[in-house]
Amino acid sequence: MRRFVKDNALSLFFLVTFLIALAGQSVAGTADANDRRLADGGATISWSQYVTSSDFAVDVAENWQSEYLQFLLFILATVWLVQRGSPESKKPGEEGGESDAEQRTGRHATPGSPEWARATGLRQTLYGNSLGLVMGTIFVLSWLAQSVAGTASYNEQQLSQLQDPVSWGGYVMSPDFWDRTLQNWQSELLAVLSMVVLSVYLRQRGSPESKPVGAPHGETAAEG
């Protein structure tokens, strides 16, 4: 058990903090929703009613989609684009999908290589892009969920303000949908930009996300 925790400490840390943050969001969200409902002359709702509401769903989904988009873009952009000096980047000249030998696929697979890396054709192509495919699928589903839950949440708000509800198509063309979407995208893109550029010049001793403290600024793809 202790060995399992130690070997998976990074995943467990983020899992626990994720659950704590989600629980905190649900409590704060319930209070905020009830403030608004009372102000609109409506009835309050319980925590369990709030966490199964479209209000909570859209707030969760809009953040999830942007996070998965951030990592999807980071995964794909770093295949083809480099940043000299960044530990997040490959070295200049290494852009692209690389050879089978470099990727240890097909006949270049090693004894410990995953089975599908050893395979050829569709299986290798699928496995060779599986990280991007899964992150991209979760992004699309989250964004779709945001649009559906957002339609419900938006229409509830519209009706409470004595205005007509809209269709799903009408909602995804609405300022509310794009405001929710783009305010998340811009922050995620800025965070990636900051990480790529700041890691050229700044260090975090011991972190694999940073170059070694003594590494030159111009050294690319070095991890400390």
Binding site: L22, S53, S54, A61, L144, A149, A152
Partner: peptide, 18 residues
């Protein structure tokens, strides 16, 4: 509208049906 779960896929399915 009552969405039955917070997981994205469930949110989608139930939001569409509810």
């Amino acid at each position: 509208m009552r969405v039955r779960a917070v997981l994205v896929v469930s949110v989608l399915a139930v939001a569409l049906s509810g």
